[in-house]
Structures are given as structure tokens and as C-alpha cells.
Nucleic acid binder design. Structure first.
Lengths: 241, 241
DNA sequence: TCAAGAAATTAGGCATTCCTAAATCTCATG
DNA sequence: CATGAGATTTAGGAATGCCTAATTTCTTGA
């Protein structure tokens, strides 16, 4: 903190590095440290490319990385991560709320915009949007100071069968195919679903989405985060469209 | 037009190439073809870097370039140019009108955003902004089809002395120092100025900006484009702030 | 315990895009 | 028409960031 940069987005941080930090940070939310393979798969790169870059990120102090043991974001890396995610998710909010784009395909566009967004624009974009705390997929948006709003929702698969829940978050928002799958079945943030069954054989999950049956595998279902809905007789709640 | 891309922003056009095309296109508005030196100066690069890239842009069919004779955008290059400028200036409008940024420093930010903006976002951003025809510096914004609105204004220096004019365009909006110079003297789009004098000795231009005298050299003054104001007695017109 | 097999790294290359230094071309002018 | 200044290109090299192929390390089950 001597003559160092105060805003990670401004200084000598290459756009490629930001992308790596973003992916590593997101993967680390699932399990840490992150191996080379998941990063390579996520970024559609060959493993040696990732291996090499991890070394360079470690040199820059953005990650800690002992060979054969995966990578974790350093303190500096986590600060950059929060900043990148903030930019990313603010753009997602802009793209959906103001440009009318659909939540299931804004990830890629936000990804492209985030790396060209310097701090003055980030700050003003935040104000313009009303400093939202959650992105269109329900994930938290770090504040300008790097603090995270609480994560919302509990895993749908851990909830008792038979009750109704409102979807408040869909994880792994960078998996476009998964989001499209859900989008086409009207499963999105705010949707009220009733958990009908989790098949003991292969784990297939059956939902009722405002009267329509929807089935999905555990891989998809495990990404849904919900809050319980208080059951009211005679009114199945009114947030379907 | 066989299996080619229809939108230049999407396909195999590198962001670096877009920047070169943008600079070449802008410089070509002053005089064509454009030499290696002005490009290098504008992009803050060494001349061999430009020379080499011009060869590569020529290979890609974006410019025509015979050695020692400067470069001009090809048809394909002009299409890309219009598209890049469209994205650039739409972002400038967004940054000033919606994020409240000042017209004199949005160029750089728009420059960073433009290269990450794919067609769906460009189209929706255009609609969101009401498909404006002019950027905050008064330059025309090409439409989605690549057609340009007419250029506005006439050179201030070609106007008769003593009359009032409204500034409708400031050229070379990528020259931040020049824009700041003007900004600090309240000379901007919409400002009404009276042309007081053009010194025959060194060409220094004297203006009256709502009662305040403002002097500037020809290099700056030659970038101002104005429309005449019909003189009305007893009302010096009311657009100063 | 030990040998697949999976995961990760090293080795060696390539494309992009920049640089400095040196050579070359153009053009105005004496 | 020769020449020197200035513009431009060529030559040679470096950093980034990706690749394939080969090697090394880790893990796990027989």
C-alpha cells in the first residue's frame, strides 16, 4: 500500500489476467483450491496454457500456487476478483433491466464489457443502477469497497419434498447451455416451483412450475437456490410470468 | 457476401485491428491517404509497429497500402470503421447522458467499451438511447446500416468576424488536452460565442463567451464547427451553462 | 505395495504485437 | 541533378499467451 494502485481495474492488470482471476474465484466458491483442469475446461483452454499462466499469476501475487496442488486467490487476487465481479454483474443488471436482454445470455456480453470498464465508469454505473446487491442470476454484487452482500437461498435439493419454493439464485451463470435449458422451461429467478420428487434411482428431480411438470437431472437441479414459500390455501402465489 | 460475416464486430476482427481502423478512419477525414507517422503519433506507438500492422491490415483487406504512400481504408475497412465509430459514439452518449460524465473525458472510456460490444448490445444500446445521430462532441453516429448523418456546422475560422455562432461540433475528440482546454473555458457544444478577432500576426483567435473573453490559437480554433445565430436585439440568447 | 490411470508440468513452437537500430526511399532545394 | 532531411521500411528481438507432444507426479485399487 505504498505507491501501489488503489483500484485493481486501473493498473497493470491485463485483461487476460482478470479473466483467469474471475474464473478461479468463481470455481473456488465450489471447492478450493482449484485444479488446473477445471480452469482449463471452464476457459476452453489446453491445460498447459493454464499451468503456465498460474505460474505467472503467482509471480504477480494474484494467486498462491504450489505445483500439483491447485491454485487459490491471494488477498490481492480476492480484491481484484471482487472488483471484476462487481463490474461484471453491474453490466448484467444494465443489460437486462435497461437494454431488455434476457438473463440467460447476458453473461457473455458482460464478460466482454467488464474488462474495458475503469473505476469512474463502474462507480457511476453502480449509482445509475441504484447500487443493486444481486445480479439477474441472484448472485451477490460486491460493493465498491469489496464487501459482499449475503448469499441468498438454500439448495433446492436439501429442501423437503412437496413444498413450494421461490427460486432466488441460479449458480454457474457462465454455463449458457444450462441457463437456456432452464429458461426454456420457465425456470428463473422469482419462479415459484413445487418440489415433487427426487428419484432415488438416478436422482432425477421433478418440479411443478405453475401447473406444468418439469424434470431435470441433479447436475442442473443442484444449482438452484430457493427460499421457502409460506403455503396459503386458495392462493398459489402470483409471480409466474 | 457468401459465407462471410454480416457484422464486422462479431467475426475474426481483432480488437487491435479495430483500433487501427478507427484511428485511420478518423485521420482520413482530415487528409487521405494517411501516413505512418500520424497514426503512430495518434496511437502512441513507434513507427515500425504501425508500418508492420499496415501490412497486416492490407493482407486482411481492411486497408489499401502501397509502401511509402500511406494507407486508406478499403470498402471493407470503411464498413468496419462505421461500425466501430457507431459503438464508440453510442457509448459516449450513454456515458454523458445517463452516467453524468463530462463530454471532455468520455472518449477514452468509450474506446475501451467499444471493443467488447457485440451487435446485439449495440443494437439495443442504440434503441435505449433513442438512436441519436450525434455524439457529445457533435460528430455524426453512423446508423446500424452504416449510413452517416450529415456533418454539422461550418469552420468557425471561415465565418465573418463580429457575429455570434453556436458551437455544434468539436473535431479531434480524442485529443483530451484540447477538450480540457476548451472545457475549462466553457467552450462546448451549444455554447454561443462571438468571434471578436483573428489576429493577422499569428492567427490568435479571440472569442467572447457570454461576456468573458477567451483566446486560443488557430490549431484549437480550427477544430470548432458552428452555425450562425440570428442576432436578436435585447436578447443575447440563453444557453451558457 | 505397486502399477495403471488421471492430473499436472515441462519442452518446444507459433502468432500477435510491440520495440530499437539500421537501412532505404522520397522529395524539395541548392 | 545531387544531396540531405524526414518519412518509412527492414532486421532482429522480446513479451504475452496460446498450442501439441512428452514427461513427471499423484492417487487409487488390485
Amino acid at each position: 500500500m505504498t505507491t501501489e494502485t488503489s483500484h485493481p481495474s486501473v493498473a497493470a492488470v491485463r485483461s487476460t489476467e482478470e479473466q483467469y482471476v474471475e474464473v478461479i474465484g468463481l470455481l473456488e466458491e465450489q471447492n478450493s483450491p482449484v485444479g488446473t483442469a477445471p480452469i482449463a475446461e471452464n476457459m476452453q483452454l489446453a491445460m498447459p496454457s493454464v499451468s503456465e499462466m498460474l505460474k505467472r499469476l503467482a509471480d504477480k501475487g494474484l494467486v498462491t500456487h504450489a505445483p500439483y496442488e491447485g491454485a487459490s486467490l491471494s488477498e490481492k487476487g480476492r480484491m481484484l476478483f471482487a472488483n471484476v465481479i462487481r463490474r461484471h454483474r453491474l453490466w448484467e443488471v444494465f443489460l437486462t433491466q435497461h437494454l431488455g436482454m434476457s438473463w440467460h445470455n447476458v453473461y457473455e456480453h458482460a464478460c466482454r464489457l467488464e474488462h474495458g470498464t475503469l473505476e469512474p465508469v463502474t462507480a457511476r454505473l453502480g449509482s445509475f443502477l441504484g447500487n443493486p446487491e444481486y445480479c439477474p442470476h441472484g448472485s451477490p454484487i460486491p460493493g465498491a469497497d469489496g464487501t459482499w452482500p449475503p448469499s441468498q437461498g438454500q439448495p433446492l435439493l436439501e429442501m423437503p419434498i412437496g413444498s413450494e419454493y421461490q427460486i432466488v439464485r441460479i449458480l454457474q451463470e457462465n454455463d449458457a447451455d444450462c441457463l437456456t435449458f432452464l429458461f426454456e422451461r420457465d425456470v428463473m429467478i422469482g419462479t415459484v416451483v413445487r418440489l415433487m420428487d427426487i428419484a432415488s434411482y438416478d436422482g432425477t428431480v421433478s418440479l411443478d412450475v405453475s401447473g406444468k411438470p418439469v424434470a431435470m437431472g441433479t447436475r442442473v437441479a443442484s444449482r438452484l437456490r430457493v427460499t421457502p414459500i409460506v403455503e396459503m390455501r386458495g392462493n398459489a402465489s402470483g409471480e409466474s410470468t
